[in-house]
């Protein structure tokens, strides 16, 4: 049962990601991103991370994607113009991506014995486990993230503001 669900939503996730790249209209890409995010949430749930799954739906599918679609609609972005793309992407990009995929697949398959396995749906990561890691062991990285967000906001304001003159 868990395995079936995993394959359905794993496949949906990959299909959504491919569709995201292939679509010409930004709004279609944004909608496929929602598919990706939601199926990821289901995968998290299958691994027992219930809080993370809920947060994924609320934050990504809910807040971020709504903003995305709003921005696209406000900008009234049209279809992308078809370009030939860069030559470098064809010569280096695709073989490179294929090589990385191949290497990783080979290693995961070869090392599957050493790495151990996790049964789907076997145990539950409770919110208290998660918060122990987030607010105790990784307290400093968590707090420093606020500086990261602060400079992102500061930069957006500084770059988007119209000149003084």
């Amino acid at each position: 049962m868990h395995l079936v669900l995993f394959f359905i939503f794993g496949g949906l996730c990959v299909a959504g990601a491919l569709n995201l790249l292939l679509q010409r209209h930004p709004i279609n890409s944004a909608l496929s991103l929602i598919v990706v995010m939601t199926s990821l949430a289901v995968l998290y749930l299958l691994l027992g991370a219930e809080f993370l799954a809920a947060a994924q739906v609320i934050v990504y599918s809910g807040a971020i994607m709504v903003l995305f679609t709003f921005v696209i609609m406000l900008l009234n972005a049209g279809r992308e113009e078809k370009t030939h793309g860069s030559k470098a992407a064809y010569i280096v990009g695709f073989p490179g991506a294929a090589a990385i995929l191949g290497v990783l697949a080979y290693i995961f398959l070869k090392q599957s014995g050493n790495l151990g396995s996790a049964k789907l749906g076997e145990y539950l990561v409770t919110t208290s486990d998660l918060s122990r890691v987030l607010f105790r062991d990784l307290l400093l990285p968590f707090e420093v993230t606020s500086v990261l967000i602060l400079i992102a906001i500061l930069g957006a304001v500084a770059l988007a503001r119209k000149g003084h003159e």
Partner: peptide, 29 residues
């Protein structure tokens, strides 16, 4: 340039990140 104040703030914040990198012993940090 506009936003000179933000420029100085950005340099300070950027330095925070660089300094943290050199003293961090945890990959996430």
């Amino acid at each position: 340039a506009e936003s000179v104040g933000e420029f100085f703030a950005l340099i300070c914040f950027g330095a925070v990140g660089m300094m943290l990198m050199t003293s961090a012993v945890e990959l996430l940090l």
